[in-house]
C-alpha cells in the first residue's frame, strides 16, 4: 500500500488492517444511514411504506415545504391557545444560539485575558475556581437554577437564557488562558507606551491574536446551543427553538405527520441543516481545535 507522497505503509499489520476494515464498514454504515435519511426525506409515504429501499421513484420536495408549514407547537397562555410555527422557532433558535454563543465566549475570553495579563491573587482565585468547579460534580441543581431564573425574571426569555449561559466556567476558559499566557506582555506594553488604553490593548492587540480560537469557540458553542433541546424546554418553554419543535413533533405528531416517516426525516434534516453546513465549511478548524470538551446537545 502506498501513501500519496510515495511513502509505504510499511508497518501496517493484520490487526491494523482488520481495524481499518471495521472502521471502513462503520463509516460506510454512517454514510449509508445519512444517505437513506436524505433520499427518503424526498420519498412519498405510500412508496416508502411499500418498500423503504425504493428511494428514487418519487422526488417530493413538498415534504420540506409541508414541514415548514405544519411543524408547530400548541401553547396555551392566559387561557388563550395559539400555535408557534417553524419560522418563529427558527428565529428563536438563531437568536438563542447566536446570543448564548457570543455571551458565553466573550465572557470566557475576557475573564481569561484578565486572569492571564493582570496577575494578582484574585486572578489566581478565579483560575482555581474554574478547575474546582470542573472537578466537583454537583447533581440535581437544575430545579434551583429554575427557581433563581424565575425570581430574577429571566425565565421564559431568550435573553434570560443568554445571560444564564454567560459564564466563564468550563474547559474553554483554560484553553483561552493558555493562549493568552503564550502571548508576550511586550505587545500590550508597547501599545500602551504609544498611548493605547487598557480596553484598546485588549480589543485591538490581544483579541486579534486569538481570533481563530475565538471564532472556533463561537462555532462550537453555536452548534451546542442549536442542538440543545432540553435547556430551552426547561428554561424557555414559551420560546421554543427548532430542536424543541422537533422533539414536540415526535411526541405529539398531528395527522399529517403520524406514521409519515419521510416527513419526520425531512424535519430532521431541516433542523440539522445549519450545523451540517457549518461543519462542511469549517470541519478542518473544528476537528483541529476540538481537543477538549464535547458539543453534543
Amino acid at each position: 500500500m502506498k501513501k500519496k507522497n510515495g511513502k509505504k505503509y510499511s508497518d501496517i499489520n493484520v490487526v491494523m488492517a482488520i481495524i481499518g476494515v471495521i472502521l471502513g464498514l462503520f463509516c460506510l454504515l454512517l454514510i449509508g444511514i445519512m444517505f437513506f435519511a436524505i433520499a427518503s426525506s424526498f420519498n412519498d409515504v405510500m412508496n416508502f411504506n411499500r418498500n423503504p429501499l425504493n428511494m428514487f421513484s418519487t422526488f417530493k420536495t413538498e415534504n420540506y415545504s409541508n414541514v415548514f408549514l405544519y411543524m408547530q407547537i400548541r401553547k396555551t397562555i392566559g387561557g388563550r391557545q395559539f400555535y408557534i410555527k417553524a419560522p418563529e422557532m427558527y428565529l428563536n433558535s438563531v437568536l438563542f444560539s447566536v446570543g448564548a454563543a457570543f455571551s458565553a465566549v466573550i465572557v470566557m475570553c475576557t475573564t481569561a485575558y484578565m486572569c492571564a495579563k493582570y496577575r494578582n491573587w484574585f486572578s489566581k482565585l478565579i483560575s482555581g475556581i474554574v478547575i474546582v468547579t470542573m472537578i466537583v460534580p454537583i447533581i440535581g441543581n437544575t430545579p434551583s437554577a429554575l427557581d433563581i431564573s424565575i425570581k430574577l425574571g429571566l425565565y421564559n426569555k431568550i435573553y434570560g437564557m443568554c445571560i444564564m449561559k454567560a459564564s466563564f466556567l468550563g474547559m474553554y476558559f483554560l484553553i483561552f488562558i493558555a493562549a493568552f499566557n503564550g502571548i508576550p506582555d511586550d505587545f500590550g506594553e508597547a501599545a500602551q507606551i504609544d498611548g493605547a488604553s487598557q480596553f484598546y490593548t485588549y480589543v485591538l492587540i490581544y483579541l486579534p491574536l486569538v481570533r481563530n480560537m475565538f471564532f472556533t469557540m463561537i462555532i462550537l458553542n453555536f452548534i451546542g446551543n442549536w442542538n440543545d433541546y432540553q435547556g430551552p424546554m426547561l428554561f424557555m418553554p414559551d420560546k421554543p427553538t427548532i430542536s424543541f419543535g422537533l422533539f414536540y413533533l415526535t411526541q405529539y405528531p398531528d395527522n399529517r405527520f403520524n406514521g409519515n416517516t419521510p416527513l419526520f426525516l425531512a424535519a430532521s434534516i431541516l433542523v440539522a441543516f445549519p450545523t451540517i453546513l457549518l461543519f462542511c465549511a469549517f470541519h478542518d478548524r473544528l476537528l483541529g481545535n476540538l481537543s477538549m470538551g464535547g458539543i453534543k446537545g
Binding site: L30, N227, L246, L265
Partner: peptide, 25 residues
C-alpha cells in the same frame, strides 16, 4: 471526518433517523 459528523447533529434528528433505519431498512 465521517465519525465526527454525528457529534454535530442534534440527537433528536439522529434518533429519528436511527428509528427509521431499524424499523424500515
Amino acid at each position: 471526518v465521517i465519525i465526527f459528523i454525528p457529534s454535530i447533529i442534534t440527537v433528536l434528528a439522529l434518533a429519528i433517523v436511527y428509528n427509521a433505519t431499524v424499523n424500515n431498512v
